[in-house]
Write a protein that binds this DNA or RNA. Structure first.
Lengths: 336, 336
DNA sequence: GCGTGACGTCGAAGCGCTTCGACGGGCGAA
DNA sequence: TTCGCCCGTCGAAGCGCTTCGACGTCACGC
């Protein structure tokens, strides 16, 4: 193994000079830098990660905790992970993969052994058991999603409230006057992240602002439930022409149910959703949707972490603006 | 930060004794071990990963390179990754996530800087550009999939030949006499891993052994192509009653095409597939299939690596036996 | 009774890097 | 001309751990 002293000897300088030439933490003359770089190239020198970590107390590794729970949309997690890795590399960092399963112990282990410099935690629950630990850890972390109390933590996610608003506004702009939100199963509103509630808030606020009649329907994620909620909607709101769906597995069954009830999408009914683009595109009728911007979240999460590692202050909450893509499931209201 | 000298002092022993008590590399008296363990607990001691890596030249980290190419089934990759992480933890190792995108440079970097002790490379191509590098690296690696020339490397994958055989044998057992294999697009047979050819080999060999009439049809992954190949099959082999599909995106469209041509599955036609269980289960008619055992591959890949790290010899090729799950798409031939 | 090991422990020497303080030389200001 | 300062470089001291050789003790066999 070629080490820094070899490079130093070969370049006719001291090891510390090589180190400074590499890190740029002290000024080095152009000439010396050249010689060092050449020596490095000729010898194929690679600094030893462990030695570096020991001496500098920086491992240049980030931990990423991925969720395992069923019901998580795998491609979204994957895209997020890839985006984290890619962005981390831009900042000369690597990514250590942890599973939710490891829990607190895993987090504590990688943090306390200085294996990683910082942590990214996905799929944060409303009352996530890891919160106290993350607060007490001496290493910075960023959470994807918002817990009930995010004080002292750094969180990032799609702005679900705005996403709900955008959906309604889009429908309003198309002339729809009566809209409904089909949401996640009731337990999600209680147990999980705050995002479900925030969609409702946005949806309702925007509907009120635009003077639309609106209703909200939490719904189980089964085709049978889709059928039921579709029937119920038509019964209770016969003038309904716009639907916002925030329940991924329900999206396709719900559209099927409406069509079986004689409503054409988008002819009679416009449907928008908050879901991964992938899903929106794969439905029989491609759905106008607000995307879950996994890549963007991943990138920004890393950037927040880098700022924190650099000692800079970062906002506790970062909300990503929703971006809507129009597809085939929405159309102007036909005033027949 | 509490370090090993603190523990040593607290326990009234020398640092080396603490180290040996931890690693078990030298005998330590019961009494001393107890005292050391207690000191560790009381002080909350965690060995510094970098220092450990430097002193022992072992980082206890594995690199996992995941594919990004389109056409890869994401949940399979994910399950594999999770299985690698989980298994690695059982051996007290962590996993560093790399993307294909980083290429040779990424592999060389983590290997040469001693960031990782060993590497797992997914999605190995027939003529994978990384092969020379992996051979030359001083660190052990395991590849998922078989390149054209695997000499000097350690590879593991499903035994695709046996998988092809199992499918045919299942059909033969059900009384089918005329079978066809619908395979991957032609370019896959050239460009990609060897698995496509090996399915064909197994399929053909088993059909010959059982005295079945058989044919092989590479096929593009589009619904239109599905329709075409279905028509062609019925034209060329009117007595066809058994089909093996080794082309994931084609599975559902192909079944649709057959049914539109008036063949009921499994009434008139039995279908088996080689694909992720997930896919097989999600088709309208759940398909009898040989699974892609991602979790098992991940686990065994790690175990192979651990053996290599321990200095043990491992087989160059590990082929996982196929496991078939019977679902609703196969039935005995009706001799009407 | 003494040599021989095995056992249990210690001390010290690194592992390869970063970083701090120091220092010589050159330059601008006084 | 001299003082002070900054630039560029060096040497040395660790960072926290593992590991090697050494040493004392005890039990055993002859």
């Amino acid at each position: 193994m070629v080490k820094i002293t070899d490079v130093a000897r070969h370049a006719g300088v001291s090891p510390s000079t090589v180190s400074y030439a590499l890190s740029g933490k002290r000024p080095i003359s152009e000439e010396t830098r050249r010689r060092v770089e050449e020596a490095i190239r000729e010898l194929g020198y690679r600094p030893h990660a462990g030695a570096r970590a020991l001496a500098s107390s920086r491992s240049n590794v980030l931990a990423l905790v991925i969720p395992l729970r069923a019901g998580i949309h795998v491609p979204v997690v994957m895209r997020f992970a890839v985006s984290v890795v890619t962005t981390a590399r831009r900042y000369d960092h690597d990514v250590l993969l942890l599973t939710q399963e490891e829990g607190d112990d895993g987090l504590r282990r990688v943090a306390d052994t200085a294996l990683v410099d910082a942590l990214i935690v996905m799929d944060v629950q409303l009352h996530d058991p890891r919160l106290p630990l993350l607060r007490s850890l001496e290493r910075p972390s960023v959470m994807i999603g918002f817990p009930a109390d995010s004080a002292g933590l750094t969180c990032i996610d799609l702005d679900f409230k705005a996403a709900g608003e955008v959906c309604v506004e889009h429908l309003a702009r198309l002339g729809h006057r009566v809209v409904a939100l089909v949401g996640s199963p009731p337990e999600v509103y209680v147990r999980r992240t705050a995002f479900a509630q925030r969609v409702v808030q946005g949806f309702t606020a925007a509907a009120d602002r635009s003077g639309l009649a609106s209703s909200v329907h939490p719904c189980e994620a089964s085709p049978a439930a889709a059928r039921l909620v579709a029937e119920q909607l038509l019964r209770e709101q016969p003038a309904l022409t716009g639907v916002v769906v925030h329940n991924e597995p329900l999206l396709e069954p719900l559209i099927d149910a409406f069509e079986q009830l004689g409503l054409r999408v988008p002819g009679d009914l416009s449907v928008t959703a908050i879901c991964p683009d992938e899903l929106a595109e794969s439905v029989r009728v491609p759905v106008t949707s607000v995307a879950l911007p996994s890549a963007e979240v991943g990138e920004q999460a890393v950037q927040l972490l880098m700022k924190k590692l650099g000692g800079d202050a970062v906002p506790e909450a970062t909300l990503l603006p929703p971006r809507m893509t129009e597809r085939a499931s929405t159309a102007p209201r036909t005033t027949s």
